[in-house]
Amino acid sequence: MKELNPLLHSQLRLAIISLLLSVEEADFNYLKEQSGATAGNLSVQIDKLSEAGYIEVRKEIVGKKPRTTCRITEQGREALNEYVTVLKEYLGHNF
């Protein structure tokens, strides 16, 4: 049986990528609010997903405040799709 992608097999990273799956883009505050994560932890996990090419991160200044916006990439979408396929196999074996 194939291994679950270790980069996605983390509660917070999986939450981020799942949240981004249904939106065109979302900012840092939205992800923080919806995932219930701390800002520091969220920031670290966003960097990891970005380095893997699963999400795109855009940093800009809106008004006088910095704003970080994330969106899922095609690579991220494929990775999550594959993760869910493998997950189904795992769960299929356990039921």
Binding site: L4, Q11, V23, Y90
Partner: peptide, 18 residues
Amino acid sequence: FNEQDSLRVITEMIHKTK
């Protein structure tokens, strides 16, 4: 964090966005 949790997280997050 196991496979059941994975499924719960994915479902919960997609539901929140919906």
